[in-house]
Amino acid sequence: MIFSRPNLFTFFRTAFLKAILLLGLCGCAILHKVQLSDIDNRSQFVQVPFDVKVSETGVDVKDIERLGRASGSQAGNDIGNVAALVALFQMGPRSGAPVFSEKYAEKIIYQIHQQCPSGNYSGVTSIRETRKYPVISGEIVKVTGFCLREKKGASL
């Protein structure tokens, strides 16, 4: 009975919608900026990789507005109106969704020196990216590099 035409159509339609939902829940990764520092690739050093990642939750009120209006209900419309009003107070150039604290990336310098106490590091890649989900997003700053340690017995 599952193989009758209306059932087959319903089955595939449901499966397709579930797949879209699953993809949506996985999130989209958006790259905003990438920068590289100098790279010291001399053979006298052992390169130990390090990784520092900080993030903050971003809230996109435009998503809230769209979802509210798409719901078609009075409550949804009210929420959409409030979200539209809030969006007027969040104007300006933006990379990703707005966050409520800009200080989340201020301690990176300490975290790098924690992972590389000698301070001898190079090949630093600084990445600013967003992991986007419906309404909320992860505003991520990722810094990767190599901590250089002299090889024992190596000559300069």
Partner: peptide, 14 residues
């Protein structure tokens, strides 16, 4: 207060 962080760049330590 809503903020948008555009970039964070870490230079080398040479």
């Amino acid at each position: 207060c809503a903020y948008s962080v555009h970039q964070v760049y870490v230079s080398d330590n040479i």
